[in-house]
Design a binder for these strands. Structure first.
Lengths: 154, 154
DNA sequence: TATAATAATGAAAACCATTTTCATTTAAAG
DNA sequence: CTTTAAATGAAAATGGTTTTCATTATTATA
């Protein structure tokens, strides 16, 4: 069923985008950690593997991967974008977020995912048709204050 | 049942935050448009009403309102944060987003909103207890490519 | 295999949204 | 009215992200 090469190869082909060393490194770095990495963090890890890769390329690659829906970009409010591989929404690694707006703490959760996925799935199907969108994935985030921050002033 | 003064007055009191002219203006500006305004756009509108209000205050006010959960901050990927009043999640104005990752087009939708809210409500209750969070609201966003962008290269 | 055409890259500079500093003003408490 | 702490504006600094531009690598074509 599956072709040769990694799962994302096909996406590259669809988008007429070349598979380069830098892009493979970025995907591998994300695959190894897969948790909320910033562009700079990705750069440092990638740089450790292939020192010739520049920060600019990291940014360009991440933007590309985002548009190909291989990567999801997040803003948790701490001033820098963060990225996660999104190989299979609805699959194993998929999770949602619980975010403290004061200290920016983030909790990944998977509880009730089935019910949520079910419900979101219906919505996705509907929206996809109504607005003629090719929907690939979604973000669900809950916002509030964690225990420690609830006490604080200002 | 309701006290005197606008609905957000109580929040200010809870958080020991002063009600100032600038803050009222910001809330009013958001109340009038209530759609995806950036800090600069809010500044311009606020400035038109009260020219003594500076951009810095706009930023500070927005951060404050975000922490008090009077305002929700969004990142749609166009390089600047955007803000919406979130007076009543589950209420009339509440909506979710459908975002094109290429052209950054945003569609507000309310379809299936009740089912989603319903389903998310259960999750919220569960998470709230499990992680001891005071959850005030949520974001649901679908990502993909719109009709026009699906054809484009690169 | 040569050659042409296009895409990808790195380094440095530019950009620009957001934050910080600091001196001043304003609001609430006693 | 006085005191104390919070809020503000202007200007400067910050720092994540993008652009520019010259160079290199990749794919298509002859």
């Amino acid at each position: 069923m599956h072709g040769r090469g990694p799962w994302w190869q096909e996406r590259f082909n669809q988008h007429c985008v070349r598979v380069t060393a830098a892009r493979e490194v970025v995907i591998n770095v994300l695959h190894e950690t897969a948790e909320h990495l910033s562009a700079t963090e990705i750069y440092m890890k990638a740089h450790a593997i292939s020192p010739e890769i520049g920060l600019t390329t990291i940014y360009r690659t991440l933007e590309l991967l985002e548009q190909m829906r291989i990567v999801q970009k997040f803003d948790f409010g701490d001033g820098q974008a963060r990225f996660e591989l999104l190989n299979n929404p609805g699959g194993k690694g998929h999770h949602h977020h619980l975010i403290c707006v004061k200290c920016k703490k983030i909790i990944d959760y998977k509880d009730f995912i089935n019910e949520e996925i079910n419900c979101l799935g219906k919505t996705q199907e509907f929206l996809s048709e109504k607005y003629n969108f090719q929907i690939n994935d979604h973000i669900v985030s809950f916002y509030g204050l964690c225990e420690e921050c609830r006490g604080k002033k200002s």
